[in-house]
Nucleic acid binder design. Sequence first.
DNA 1: CGCGACCTTGATGATGATCAAACAACGTGG
DNA 2: CCACGTTGTTTGATCATCATCAAGGTCGCG
Lengths: 228, 228
Amino acid sequence: MHCLTLSHNLQPVPNEAMHEAGLPQGQSLVFGARETIYHEVDEVRHVYRLVQGAVMLYQILSDGRRQVVDLIAPGEFFGLGDGTLQDCSAETLVPTRLAFWDERVAASSPALSRALTVSLGAKLARMHDHATLLGRKTATERVASFLMRFVPECGGRICAGAPPVGYERVPRVLAMSRQEIGDYLGLTLETVSRTLNDLKRRGLIAFVKRDVILIKDICRLCRLASLH
Amino acid sequence: MHCLTLSHNLQPVPNEAMHEAGLPQGQSLVFGARETIYHEVDEVRHVYRLVQGAVMLYQILSDGRRQVVDLIAPGEFFGLGDGTLQDCSAETLVPTRLAFWDERVAASSPALSRALTVSLGAKLARMHDHATLLGRKTATERVASFLMRFVPECGGRICAGAPPVGYERVPRVLAMSRQEIGDYLGLTLETVSRTLNDLKRRGLIAFVKRDVILIKDICRLCRLASLH
DNA sequence: CGCGACCTTGATGATGATCAAACAACGTGG
DNA sequence: CCACGTTGTTTGATCATCATCAAGGTCGCG
């Protein structure tokens, strides 16, 4: 489980897809699935941006209870902790490519600062939604909300109207175990399993494999989710 | 209930306490207790910074369930929504003074951008802690964690060692009803009431008035809170 | 003094957690 | 290629925590 042992997969300097609006060039970093990027106690040294893949951030209480506090999608920044120390651990869900900058570069680059502000602002809004999910929603609403993530066109606060054509045939890879989904939604793995199978029985979703699903009825799912 | 009717309490330009590190000068804004600063559907136009007082951010689901998604303390920025629309409503808890800037100023001022990045980063870390609270903690742990907010020296991730001298005599004004505390902690008002009175019975806190308490044993409270 | 808002306390119930066991998927090695 | 073990998932039975429902009680204020 490597952590800040960057050396072996450090690469010169990438140039693809990731420089926009005059961001200073970052360095590139590649991980396999289920590798730790940093731990909760680590010092904050870098700002990371997910280029490709998926990352999960989690905290663990002393008695082992775990909360997955965020799921990072491509384009998002992470790794700032509370400014000094990391407030959570970061682990890849699938093979992943990151860009990163020294934290001091972020402090001195207006372009990066601005990009970070925008990204963190949007992230904060999504954390607010997630707080409402964790504080006030039922198990079914939580799982439905989670599944809405897989149709970003419909997952926003405003319904786009007609769902994307052929959406019900697109395989959606969860890339997370029932346990991890539960830790994200504040539920147990059993409750996640029961709820998913209930949604299947009611025809809202179908299973291709254990962690690959089809969303058969996005509108009904959306209503179940109680997205405010 | 005014919202963006700023005119009557708009003031020229304040100069106290709030300009630091070359922030562009903002405008000042004064509210009484329990006034709405903006609503969930409003457009994002301004960046706010709390100078004095307290603000609560909340979301409401269609059936009335409410979640208080954040409590804002002096010095903190808020009001960015998802970048376009507000994702929650903002209401003062007590008489409050704000500074605010046009959102476009924030976009073009490196100093403000940087200040925002730092503030939002720290805020994000606290949201992570709150997600863990909402997703994984028991009622007692939630209420204890909430009370730890009132002793900032001890409320951090690392225990400062000896608590501040005479802390058990400092009156702490909750400034929130049981209902609001419940909406913040993902509990009902009854559970909050029961838990607070249980902590009183066990000698951890004492009531001065209904919404003014003394924290009698911060260390025991801290242990109860399961701050990770 | 009496009203209204908020809080406390008790009784009951529902949702989701826990405990337990069987089952499916997958990789390994015979 | 299949038996086997491992890991993760499903499903059922039971339990605990907290929500809900329902009275009273306290405080502050006109």
